[in-house]
């Protein structure tokens, strides 16, 4: 079923992941004065003028306001709870554009003395998660061929005579993660690969000339 009635005044924009992430934005963290955001709070019953600044989730005047890349205003606590409800399917509650924690912009009005990033307040901001990059492939610089980087030397002989030398790379099962250059292991493996290369070449010569 695909019958959806959206608010008429909500422009349906499909703003998907294209913006610079706001994760590295810095804010002056003078957490001294009044902690309340946005003056008139609670939103009286008959204040139609304020409706432009109502959170799209709680329908109250937005507190700790953030705005999505598609231009929709929310209280950060409300939006956070929405994102938590659907961690695998984070869409804007108004227009269903893709949104995420890092793609909302905190709004700072003049009245709010505390210029702390609202995203840092209620749920403590998760610390950055960093994984080591995949190491560059190729540790076979033997005979000067592999110095360029990704060169890998595979040497295989099928049936004749015993199939001794299959792929050099998997020798000892250590090929999955090449050691970083400069370590002792790197030196050893480099030496080993050169020895094997020499043996392979000798074997070839033996095949051809004997």
């Amino acid at each position: 079923m695909t019958v959806v009635v959206l608010e008429e005044d909500s422009t349906i924009t499909m703003a998907t992941a294209r913006a610079p992430t706001a994760s590295d934005s810095t804010h002056s963290d003078n957490s001294s004065s009044n902690p309340s955001g946005g003056g008139a709070e609670g939103g009286g019953d008959d204040v139609p003028d304020n409706s432009n600044f109502e959170c799209n989730i709680c329908l109250d005047t937005a507190k700790d306001a953030v705005i999505s890349m598609c231009g929709h205003l929310f209280c950060w606590p409300c939006l956070h709870q929405w994102l938590e409800t659907r961690p695998n399917h984070q869409t804007c509650p108004v227009c269903k554009a893709a949104i995420s924690r890092d793609k909302v912009i905190p709004l700072y009005g003049r009245g709010s003395g505390n210029q702390q990033d609202p995203r840092d307040k209620l749920p403590p901001r998760p610390s950055g998660q960093r994984t080591e990059p995949e190491p560059q492939g190729g540790f076979m610089p033997g005979l000067g061929l592999g110095e360029a980087g990704g060169f890998q030397f595979h040497f295989g002989i099928g049936a004749f005579p015993f199939g001794i030398f299959t792929t050099f790379n998997n020798w000892g099962g250590a090929a999955a993660v090449p050691p970083a250059p400069g370590t002792q292991q790197y030196q050893e493996e480099r030496f080993l690969s050169q020895v094997l290369m020499a043996m392979g070449l000798l074997f070839l010569f033996w095949l051809i000339f004997v």
Binding site: M1, T2, W82, T91, C92, P93, V94
Partner: peptide, 13 residues
């Protein structure tokens, strides 16, 4: 059977 009453619900509705 209407998607917005199930998985297509959005908090602004």
């Amino acid at each position: 059977c209407l998607d917005i009453l199930k998985d297509q619900w959005a908090a602004a509705m």
